[in-house]
Amino acid sequence: MVEHPRLNWTADGRARTARWYTTAGDTPPPPRVVAADDKMCADIAYRLVCEGTAVLWQGDYHGGRQLLAALGRRIDRRSARRGRRPAAPAGGRESGPADAFHRHRQARGHRARLLGMLLVPLAPGPRGAAVPLRRAPDVADAVAGAYGPVAEPGAVALRELLGAVGAHEWRRKGVEVPALGARVHPHYGVFSPVRGEYVDLVAEAPLPSKSLAFDVGTGTGVLAAVLARRGVERVVAVDTDPRALACARDNVERLGLGEQVEVAAGDLFPPGRAPLVVCNPPWLPAKPTAALERAVYDPGGGMLRGFLAGLGAHLEPGGEGWLILSDLAEHLGLRERAELLAAIEAGGLRVAARHDTRPRHRRATDPSDPLHAARAAEVTSLWRLTAAG
Protein backbone atom coordinates (compact mmCIF):
# COMPACT_ATOMS: atom_id res chain seq x y z
CA MET A 1 0.00 0.00 0.00
CA VAL A 2 1.24 3.52 -0.85
CA GLU A 3 2.15 5.58 2.22
CA HIS A 4 0.87 9.10 1.49
CA PRO A 5 2.71 11.97 3.23
CA ARG A 6 1.02 14.48 5.49
CA LEU A 7 -0.17 17.99 4.71
CA ASN A 8 -0.01 20.51 7.56
CA TRP A 9 -1.63 23.94 7.86
CA THR A 10 -3.27 26.33 10.32
CA ALA A 11 -6.93 27.37 10.26
CA ASP A 12 -8.76 29.49 12.84
CA GLY A 13 -5.59 29.56 14.88
CA ARG A 14 -5.45 25.77 15.14
CA ALA A 15 -2.92 23.40 13.63
CA ARG A 16 -4.49 21.04 11.09
CA THR A 17 -3.13 17.95 9.37
CA ALA A 18 -4.34 15.56 6.69
CA ARG A 19 -3.02 13.01 4.25
CA TRP A 20 -1.64 14.37 0.97
CA TYR A 21 -2.98 12.24 -1.86
CA THR A 22 -1.11 12.43 -5.14
CA THR A 23 0.02 10.02 -7.84
CA ALA A 24 3.21 12.04 -8.37
CA GLY A 25 5.24 10.31 -5.66
CA ASP A 26 8.11 12.81 -5.76
CA THR A 27 5.84 15.86 -5.38
CA PRO A 28 5.95 17.05 -1.74
CA PRO A 29 2.91 18.57 -0.01
CA PRO A 30 2.61 22.36 -0.31
CA PRO A 31 4.47 24.04 2.55
CA ARG A 32 1.70 26.59 3.15
CA VAL A 33 -2.08 26.12 2.97
CA VAL A 34 -4.98 28.51 3.49
CA ALA A 35 -8.61 27.46 3.71
CA ALA A 36 -11.02 29.18 1.33
CA ASP A 37 -14.67 29.14 0.31
CA ASP A 38 -16.95 30.87 -2.17
CA LYS A 39 -16.06 34.28 -0.74
CA MET A 40 -12.49 34.09 -2.12
CA CYS A 41 -12.10 35.80 -5.48
CA ALA A 42 -9.93 34.44 -8.30
CA ASP A 43 -7.43 37.30 -8.12
CA ILE A 44 -6.61 36.58 -4.48
CA ALA A 45 -6.36 32.85 -5.15
CA TYR A 46 -4.07 33.52 -8.12
CA ARG A 47 -1.79 35.69 -5.99
CA LEU A 48 -1.63 33.01 -3.31
CA VAL A 49 -0.73 30.14 -5.63
CA CYS A 50 1.89 32.28 -7.37
CA GLU A 51 3.45 32.88 -3.95
CA GLY A 52 3.53 29.13 -3.28
CA THR A 53 0.52 28.94 -0.95
CA ALA A 54 -2.03 26.23 -1.64
CA VAL A 55 -5.74 27.00 -1.43
CA LEU A 56 -7.83 24.30 0.30
CA TRP A 57 -11.31 24.74 -1.12
CA GLN A 58 -14.19 24.28 1.31
CA GLY A 59 -17.03 25.85 -0.64
CA ASP A 60 -19.35 24.49 -3.32
CA TYR A 61 -17.69 21.83 -5.49
CA HIS A 62 -18.71 23.47 -8.77
CA GLY A 63 -17.52 26.79 -7.40
CA GLY A 64 -14.11 25.16 -6.96
CA ARG A 65 -14.16 24.02 -10.59
CA GLN A 66 -15.02 27.55 -11.68
CA LEU A 67 -12.13 28.90 -9.60
CA LEU A 68 -9.78 26.39 -11.23
CA ALA A 69 -10.89 27.57 -14.68
CA ALA A 70 -10.42 31.20 -13.64
CA LEU A 71 -6.89 30.46 -12.42
CA GLY A 72 -6.14 28.78 -15.74
CA ARG A 73 -7.26 31.86 -17.67
CA ARG A 74 -5.03 34.12 -15.59
CA ILE A 75 -2.03 31.83 -16.04
CA ASP A 76 -2.64 31.65 -19.80
CA ARG A 77 -2.97 35.43 -20.14
CA ARG A 78 0.30 35.97 -18.34
CA SER A 79 1.98 33.28 -20.43
CA ALA A 80 0.65 34.87 -23.63
CA ARG A 81 2.08 38.25 -22.61
CA ARG A 82 5.45 36.65 -21.99
CA GLY A 83 5.25 34.82 -25.30
CA ARG A 84 4.91 38.10 -27.19
CA ARG A 85 8.24 39.30 -25.85
CA PRO A 86 11.21 38.48 -28.11
CA ALA A 87 13.26 35.71 -26.52
CA ALA A 88 17.01 36.22 -26.30
CA PRO A 89 18.84 33.39 -28.10
CA ALA A 90 20.61 31.09 -25.65
CA GLY A 91 24.36 31.54 -25.88
CA GLY A 92 23.95 33.95 -28.76
CA ARG A 93 22.64 31.28 -31.13
CA GLU A 94 19.34 31.19 -32.96
CA SER A 95 16.47 29.49 -31.18
CA GLY A 96 15.61 26.14 -32.76
CA PRO A 97 12.86 23.51 -32.44
CA ALA A 98 14.49 21.91 -29.39
CA ASP A 99 14.43 25.27 -27.59
CA ALA A 100 10.77 25.72 -28.55
CA PHE A 101 9.99 22.24 -27.23
CA HIS A 102 11.70 22.86 -23.89
CA ARG A 103 10.02 26.27 -23.50
CA HIS A 104 6.66 24.65 -24.26
CA ARG A 105 7.21 21.92 -21.65
CA GLN A 106 8.45 24.46 -19.12
CA ALA A 107 5.31 26.57 -19.63
CA ARG A 108 3.06 23.52 -19.32
CA GLY A 109 4.89 22.39 -16.19
CA HIS A 110 4.57 25.86 -14.63
CA ARG A 111 0.85 25.92 -15.42
CA ALA A 112 0.34 22.45 -13.94
CA ARG A 113 2.23 23.39 -10.76
CA LEU A 114 0.12 26.50 -10.16
CA LEU A 115 -3.19 24.78 -10.89
CA GLY A 116 -2.11 21.92 -8.63
CA MET A 117 -2.19 24.34 -5.69
CA LEU A 118 -5.99 24.38 -5.59
CA LEU A 119 -6.93 21.52 -3.27
CA VAL A 120 -10.16 19.82 -2.21
CA PRO A 121 -10.69 17.56 0.81
CA LEU A 122 -11.07 13.79 0.64
CA ALA A 123 -12.77 11.74 3.34
CA PRO A 124 -13.40 8.03 3.90
CA GLY A 125 -16.98 6.99 3.14
CA PRO A 126 -19.15 3.89 3.49
CA ARG A 127 -18.46 2.86 -0.14
CA GLY A 128 -15.12 4.59 -0.63
CA ALA A 129 -13.63 8.06 -0.66
CA ALA A 130 -15.84 11.12 -1.01
CA VAL A 131 -15.31 14.84 -1.52
CA PRO A 132 -17.16 16.40 1.46
CA LEU A 133 -18.31 19.52 -0.42
CA ARG A 134 -21.74 20.68 -1.56
CA ARG A 135 -22.80 19.21 -4.93
CA ALA A 136 -19.71 17.03 -5.18
CA PRO A 137 -20.10 14.00 -7.48
CA ASP A 138 -19.46 10.38 -6.53
CA VAL A 139 -15.70 9.94 -6.97
CA ALA A 140 -15.22 6.72 -4.99
CA ASP A 141 -14.29 4.48 -7.92
CA ALA A 142 -12.08 7.10 -9.57
CA VAL A 143 -10.20 7.75 -6.32
CA ALA A 144 -9.73 4.04 -5.65
CA GLY A 145 -8.28 3.55 -9.14
CA ALA A 146 -5.83 6.42 -8.77
CA TYR A 147 -4.84 6.45 -5.08
CA GLY A 148 -6.00 3.19 -3.57
CA PRO A 149 -7.98 3.05 -0.30
CA VAL A 150 -8.54 6.33 1.54
CA ALA A 151 -8.47 5.33 5.19
CA GLU A 152 -8.31 8.81 6.76
CA PRO A 153 -9.18 12.39 5.80
CA GLY A 154 -6.87 14.07 3.33
CA ALA A 155 -6.59 16.52 0.47
CA VAL A 156 -5.92 16.24 -3.25
CA ALA A 157 -5.28 18.74 -6.02
CA LEU A 158 -8.61 19.41 -7.74
CA ARG A 159 -6.93 19.31 -11.15
CA GLU A 160 -5.49 15.87 -10.42
CA LEU A 161 -8.83 14.63 -9.07
CA LEU A 162 -10.59 15.75 -12.26
CA GLY A 163 -7.96 13.86 -14.22
CA ALA A 164 -8.64 10.73 -12.16
CA VAL A 165 -12.39 11.09 -12.77
CA GLY A 166 -11.79 11.47 -16.52
CA ALA A 167 -9.45 8.48 -16.55
CA HIS A 168 -12.05 6.39 -14.76
CA GLU A 169 -14.53 7.20 -17.54
CA TRP A 170 -11.96 6.10 -20.14
CA ARG A 171 -11.53 2.86 -18.21
CA ARG A 172 -15.26 2.31 -17.85
CA LYS A 173 -16.14 3.01 -21.49
CA GLY A 174 -12.95 1.76 -23.12
CA VAL A 175 -11.23 2.90 -26.31
CA GLU A 176 -12.28 1.42 -29.63
CA VAL A 177 -9.36 -0.26 -31.42
CA PRO A 178 -10.36 -1.03 -35.05
CA ALA A 179 -7.47 -3.48 -35.48
CA LEU A 180 -9.00 -5.58 -32.69
CA GLY A 181 -12.63 -4.97 -33.48
CA ALA A 182 -13.02 -4.40 -29.75
CA ARG A 183 -12.37 -1.94 -26.95
CA VAL A 184 -9.31 -1.65 -24.74
CA HIS A 185 -9.83 -0.32 -21.22
CA PRO A 186 -6.89 1.80 -19.96
CA HIS A 187 -6.34 2.03 -16.21
CA TYR A 188 -5.33 5.25 -14.48
CA GLY A 189 -1.70 6.11 -15.25
CA VAL A 190 -1.49 3.78 -18.27
CA PHE A 191 -1.24 5.43 -21.68
CA SER A 192 -4.38 4.99 -23.77
CA PRO A 193 -4.02 3.66 -27.35
CA VAL A 194 -5.76 6.68 -28.85
CA ARG A 195 -3.15 6.99 -31.63
CA GLY A 196 -4.32 4.10 -33.75
CA GLU A 197 -1.74 4.43 -36.50
CA TYR A 198 0.95 2.60 -34.53
CA VAL A 199 -1.47 -0.20 -33.71
CA ASP A 200 -2.36 -0.54 -37.40
CA LEU A 201 1.32 -0.93 -38.29
CA VAL A 202 1.55 -3.98 -36.02
CA ALA A 203 -1.74 -5.31 -37.38
CA GLU A 204 -0.54 -5.14 -41.00
CA ALA A 205 3.20 -5.96 -41.06
CA PRO A 206 4.02 -9.50 -42.30
CA LEU A 207 4.63 -11.89 -39.40
CA PRO A 208 7.95 -13.78 -39.45
CA SER A 209 6.38 -16.55 -37.34
CA LYS A 210 3.17 -17.35 -35.49
CA SER A 211 4.72 -19.52 -32.79
CA LEU A 212 5.88 -16.97 -30.18
CA ALA A 213 6.23 -13.21 -29.71
CA PHE A 214 7.53 -10.94 -26.94
CA ASP A 215 5.80 -7.58 -26.33
CA VAL A 216 8.28 -5.36 -24.49
CA GLY A 217 6.68 -2.55 -22.45
CA THR A 218 3.14 -3.76 -23.03
CA GLY A 219 1.20 -0.94 -21.33
CA THR A 220 -2.51 -1.66 -21.90
CA GLY A 221 -1.59 -4.91 -23.66
CA VAL A 222 -3.03 -3.69 -26.95
CA LEU A 223 -0.14 -4.84 -29.15
CA ALA A 224 0.00 -8.25 -27.46
CA ALA A 225 -3.73 -8.58 -28.11
CA VAL A 226 -3.32 -7.60 -31.77
CA LEU A 227 -0.60 -10.24 -32.25
CA ALA A 228 -2.75 -12.88 -30.56
CA ARG A 229 -5.73 -11.97 -32.74
CA ARG A 230 -3.45 -12.33 -35.77
CA GLY A 231 -2.85 -15.93 -34.81
CA VAL A 232 0.40 -15.84 -32.81
CA GLU A 233 0.07 -18.91 -30.62
CA ARG A 234 1.83 -17.48 -27.55
CA VAL A 235 2.65 -13.90 -26.61
CA VAL A 236 4.66 -12.92 -23.53
CA ALA A 237 3.88 -9.31 -22.59
CA VAL A 238 6.19 -7.63 -20.06
CA ASP A 239 6.22 -4.32 -18.23
CA THR A 240 7.82 -2.83 -15.12
CA ASP A 241 4.82 -0.72 -14.03
CA PRO A 242 2.36 -2.47 -11.67
CA ARG A 243 -0.50 -0.35 -13.05
CA ALA A 244 0.33 -1.44 -16.59
CA LEU A 245 0.56 -5.09 -15.58
CA ALA A 246 -2.88 -4.98 -13.93
CA CYS A 247 -4.28 -3.14 -16.94
CA ALA A 248 -2.83 -5.57 -19.49
CA ARG A 249 -4.11 -8.58 -17.54
CA ASP A 250 -7.56 -7.00 -17.34
CA ASN A 251 -7.68 -6.35 -21.10
CA VAL A 252 -6.33 -9.77 -22.03
CA GLU A 253 -9.07 -11.42 -19.96
CA ARG A 254 -11.78 -9.10 -21.32
CA LEU A 255 -10.75 -10.03 -24.88
CA GLY A 256 -10.75 -13.76 -24.11
CA LEU A 257 -7.02 -14.09 -24.87
CA GLY A 258 -5.83 -15.41 -21.53
CA GLU A 259 -4.79 -18.76 -23.04
CA GLN A 260 -2.54 -17.05 -25.62
CA VAL A 261 -1.12 -14.04 -23.78
CA GLU A 262 1.01 -14.23 -20.64
CA VAL A 263 1.51 -10.92 -18.81
CA ALA A 264 4.65 -10.84 -16.66
CA ALA A 265 6.70 -8.31 -14.72
CA GLY A 266 10.11 -7.74 -16.24
CA ASP A 267 12.70 -5.16 -17.15
CA LEU A 268 12.67 -5.03 -20.96
CA PHE A 269 12.95 -8.63 -22.20
CA PRO A 270 11.48 -11.83 -20.76
CA PRO A 271 13.85 -14.81 -20.50
CA GLY A 272 14.69 -16.70 -23.65
CA ARG A 273 14.43 -15.98 -27.36
CA ALA A 274 11.53 -15.47 -29.74
CA PRO A 275 11.10 -15.22 -33.52
CA LEU A 276 9.33 -11.89 -33.01
CA VAL A 277 10.07 -9.19 -30.41
CA VAL A 278 7.93 -6.05 -30.49
CA CYS A 279 8.60 -2.77 -28.69
CA ASN A 280 6.84 0.59 -28.79
CA PRO A 281 9.10 2.66 -26.48
CA PRO A 282 8.45 6.26 -25.40
CA TRP A 283 9.12 8.42 -28.43
CA LEU A 284 10.71 11.53 -26.87
CA PRO A 285 14.03 11.54 -24.95
CA ALA A 286 12.98 13.85 -22.12
CA LYS A 287 12.13 13.58 -18.44
CA PRO A 288 8.49 12.76 -17.59
CA THR A 289 6.82 15.00 -15.02
CA ALA A 290 3.82 12.75 -14.29
CA ALA A 291 3.08 9.03 -14.22
CA LEU A 292 1.16 9.12 -17.49
CA GLU A 293 4.04 10.84 -19.29
CA ARG A 294 6.30 7.82 -18.84
CA ALA A 295 4.72 6.34 -21.96
CA VAL A 296 5.76 9.41 -23.97
CA TYR A 297 8.99 10.65 -22.40
CA ASP A 298 12.07 8.47 -21.85
CA PRO A 299 15.03 10.23 -20.14
CA GLY A 300 18.04 9.99 -22.45
CA GLY A 301 16.20 7.47 -24.64
CA GLY A 302 17.16 4.76 -22.15
CA MET A 303 14.45 2.26 -23.08
CA LEU A 304 15.09 2.68 -26.81
CA ARG A 305 18.83 2.15 -26.37
CA GLY A 306 18.28 -0.80 -24.03
CA PHE A 307 15.95 -2.49 -26.49
CA LEU A 308 18.35 -2.10 -29.41
CA ALA A 309 21.35 -3.21 -27.34
CA GLY A 310 19.64 -6.36 -26.03
CA LEU A 311 17.44 -7.35 -28.97
CA GLY A 312 20.01 -9.56 -30.70
CA ALA A 313 20.36 -11.76 -27.63
CA HIS A 314 16.60 -12.39 -27.54
CA LEU A 315 15.94 -13.12 -31.23
CA GLU A 316 15.79 -16.62 -32.58
CA PRO A 317 17.83 -17.23 -35.75
CA GLY A 318 16.00 -15.55 -38.62
CA GLY A 319 13.75 -13.66 -36.21
CA GLU A 320 12.67 -10.03 -36.34
CA GLY A 321 12.51 -7.20 -33.85
CA TRP A 322 9.76 -4.69 -34.53
CA LEU A 323 10.57 -1.20 -33.27
CA ILE A 324 7.57 1.14 -33.46
CA LEU A 325 8.86 4.70 -33.27
CA SER A 326 7.80 8.18 -34.28
CA ASP A 327 10.38 10.56 -35.75
CA LEU A 328 8.88 13.51 -33.84
CA ALA A 329 12.05 13.68 -31.71
CA GLU A 330 14.07 14.27 -34.89
CA HIS A 331 11.83 17.13 -36.03
CA LEU A 332 12.10 18.65 -32.55
CA GLY A 333 15.89 18.46 -32.61
CA LEU A 334 15.99 16.03 -29.68
CA ARG A 335 17.52 13.14 -31.60
CA GLU A 336 19.15 12.74 -35.01
CA ARG A 337 18.37 9.92 -37.42
CA ALA A 338 22.08 9.11 -37.45
CA GLU A 339 21.93 8.37 -33.70
CA LEU A 340 19.14 5.84 -34.20
CA LEU A 341 20.94 4.14 -37.09
CA ALA A 342 24.17 4.03 -35.10
CA ALA A 343 22.37 2.38 -32.15
CA ILE A 344 20.85 -0.20 -34.49
CA GLU A 345 24.28 -1.01 -35.91
CA ALA A 346 25.89 -1.09 -32.46
CA GLY A 347 23.32 -3.70 -31.41
CA GLY A 348 24.49 -6.00 -34.22
CA LEU A 349 21.28 -5.39 -36.15
CA ARG A 350 20.28 -4.36 -39.64
CA VAL A 351 17.10 -2.85 -41.08
CA ALA A 352 15.32 -5.50 -43.14
CA ALA A 353 12.36 -3.22 -43.97
CA ARG A 354 10.44 -0.22 -42.70
CA HIS A 355 6.72 0.56 -42.82
CA ASP A 356 5.67 4.19 -42.42
CA THR A 357 2.42 5.97 -41.66
CA ARG A 358 1.30 9.52 -40.98
CA PRO A 359 -0.37 10.52 -37.70
CA ARG A 360 -4.11 10.97 -37.72
CA HIS A 361 -4.56 12.75 -34.40
CA ARG A 362 -6.05 16.25 -34.23
CA ARG A 363 -2.89 18.09 -33.18
CA ALA A 364 -1.09 17.06 -36.38
CA THR A 365 -3.33 19.47 -38.30
CA ASP A 366 -3.75 22.18 -35.66
CA PRO A 367 -1.72 25.29 -36.67
CA SER A 368 -2.27 26.82 -33.20
CA ASP A 369 -0.23 24.03 -31.57
CA PRO A 370 3.16 25.45 -30.48
CA LEU A 371 4.86 22.38 -31.99
CA HIS A 372 2.76 22.33 -35.16
CA ALA A 373 5.66 22.35 -37.63
CA ALA A 374 7.20 19.25 -36.08
CA ARG A 375 3.87 17.46 -35.67
CA ALA A 376 2.88 18.16 -39.28
CA ALA A 377 6.10 16.52 -40.52
CA GLU A 378 5.91 13.52 -38.16
CA VAL A 379 6.08 9.97 -39.49
CA THR A 380 5.55 6.86 -37.38
CA SER A 381 7.52 3.81 -38.51
CA LEU A 382 7.67 0.11 -37.82
CA TRP A 383 11.35 -0.84 -38.21
CA ARG A 384 11.82 -4.54 -38.97
CA LEU A 385 15.21 -5.42 -37.52
CA THR A 386 17.18 -8.62 -37.92
CA ALA A 387 20.59 -9.80 -36.81
CA ALA A 388 23.32 -8.35 -39.03
CA GLY A 389 25.42 -10.68 -41.14
Rank of each mutant, 00 (worst) to 15 (best):
P97K: 09
L68M: 13
G300N: 07
G256I: 02
G312C: 02
P137C: 11
L162G: 11
P31S: 15
A42Q: 05
V232Y: 03
R32T: 13
A182M: 14
V252N: 04
P124V: 10
A112P: 00
L292M: 12
Y147H: 10
A203Y: 04
T10A: 11
H4W: 14
C279I: 07
A264R: 15
L332G: 06
P275C: 08
H102T: 07
E339L: 02
A338H: 09
H331R: 15
A123N: 01
H62T: 13
G302R: 15
V175M: 06
R229E: 11
A18H: 09
P178A: 11
P126S: 15
T218E: 09
R82P: 01
P208H: 15
P121K: 05
A376V: 04
G128I: 04
A146K: 00
V34W: 02
Q58E: 14
A88P: 01
W20M: 07
L201H: 08
C41F: 04
R78T: 06
G154T: 03
R249G: 13
Q260L: 14
T380L: 10
T240H: 05
A346Y: 10
W9K: 03
R243V: 02
L223S: 02
A87P: 03
R195Q: 15
K173Q: 15
H62K: 14
E345P: 03
T386M: 12
R337H: 15
R249C: 08
G301F: 01
P30M: 11
P271L: 00
R47S: 13
A264F: 05
P132W: 03
L385W: 07
R134D: 11
G125V: 03
P31G: 15
I44A: 14
L340E: 01
D241A: 14
G347N: 02
Q106V: 12
R159V: 13
P86F: 07
G25V: 12
L7R: 04
G221H: 02
A313M: 08
A167Y: 04
V156G: 02
V2D: 09
R171A: 10
L158P: 08
L7W: 01
G166N: 13
G145H: 11
P137D: 11
L180N: 11
G13Y: 06
G319C: 01
G348Q: 09
A88W: 04
G301S: 09
V238K: 01
R108M: 13
L67S: 03
G196D: 08
R294C: 04
H361E: 11
V296S: 13
V34Q: 05
A155C: 13
R354F: 04
Y21P: 08
W20P: 00
L212G: 02
A295F: 05
A237V: 13
H185A: 06
R358I: 06
E262H: 08
V236R: 00
V235F: 07
E262V: 14
L385T: 10
V190Q: 00
D366S: 10
G52A: 08
V278R: 11
A35M: 09
R135F: 06
P5L: 09
A107S: 10
V120W: 06
V232S: 04
L308A: 10
D43T: 10
L71Q: 00
E51C: 07
G231W: 11
W383C: 04
R19Y: 06
P317L: 07
L7V: 06
L118M: 09
L332K: 06
